[in-house]
Each structure stands twice: as C-alpha cells, then as structure tokens.
C-alpha cells in the first residue's frame, strides 16, 4: 500500500525540468568555481611547501605550472577566482535585500560572466609578462 502510493507520488522538479536561465547558470557556476578554487588553493599550498622546505617539490610544481597544461590550470583558477569574487559580491548585495528583481539579477549575472572573462584575459596577459 505504502509502496504503491509512494511510487505514484510526483517527484519534486529537478534540473532537467527547468528552462535554462543565466541566473541559474551563475548559481551553478558559483558552486563549480568554489570547487575549482578548493583544488587550486590545495595545489598552491603544495607549491608553497615546496618553496619553503622541499626544492624538488617546488621544481615539480613549477614545471607543471610553466607547461601548457599549467597555463590552462592557471587560466581556470584566475577565471574562477574572478567569477567567485564578483558573484560573491552579488550574493552579499542580495543579502541586503536588494538586486533580487529578475531583470536586475539577470543583468548582474551577465555582467559577472563578462567581467570575469575580460579581467581574466587582462590578468593572464599581464602575469605572463605581456606588458613588459
């Protein structure tokens, strides 16, 4: 009885049922970039431990960082930090009860994606000595 009833109960709406919106994407990306930063900080601490105590570990970390794979890792980390930083400010603004109207939230979501991409390009260009 209980089984046949529960099998007929509707499930709560899940990811695939919603129309895709930029605000929803920004929410998912905020969580995703948080995970990327978790991993990135872990690797930076290994690099730091190498610099302080184990030169061979530093050379391994440095070798990876300076390879093409390292460029992708650094670019991903920088973009993620910029996105998480600016979307975090968006969250803090929401915490004050403002900026929650759908039009405003949609606009600021696009703004965060665009600014993160432009600033990441500038920081990578400068960080790799593009300005020197």
């Amino acid at each position: 009885m209980a089984d046949s009833l529960s099998s007929k109960r509707p499930l709560s709406p899940h990811l695939q049922i919603w129309r895709f919106t930029v605000t929803m994407a920004a929410s998912i990306t905020h969580r995703g970039t948080g995970v990327v930063l978790y991993g990135g900080v872990f690797l930076i601490v290994l690099w730091l431990i190498g610099a302080a105590f184990y030169p061979p570990l530093f050379e391994t970390a440095s070798g990876i960082v300076r390879s093409p794979v390292g460029f992708i890792l650094i670019a991903g980390f920088v973009w993620s930090l910029l996105f998480h930083l600016m979307n975090g400010l968006r969250h803090l603004y929401w915490d004050t009860g403002r900026g929650l109207a759908p039009k405003t939230a949609t606009m600021t979501a696009w703004l965060v994606y665009s600014a993160a991409t432009i600033l990441a390009a500038l920081i990578l260009w400068a960080g790799y000595g593009g300005g020197a």
């Binding site: 920088v78 910029l82 600033l119």
Partner: peptide, 12 residues
C-alpha cells in the same frame, strides 16, 4: 590576482 600569476611562474 595581481601577484599570483607571475609568482607561480617564477623560478625558485
């Protein structure tokens, strides 16, 4: 963000 890219890619 200003310092980390050049720091990570620099030598020992």
């Amino acid at each position: 963000l200003f310092g980390i890219v050049s720091a990570l890619t620099s030598d020992y």
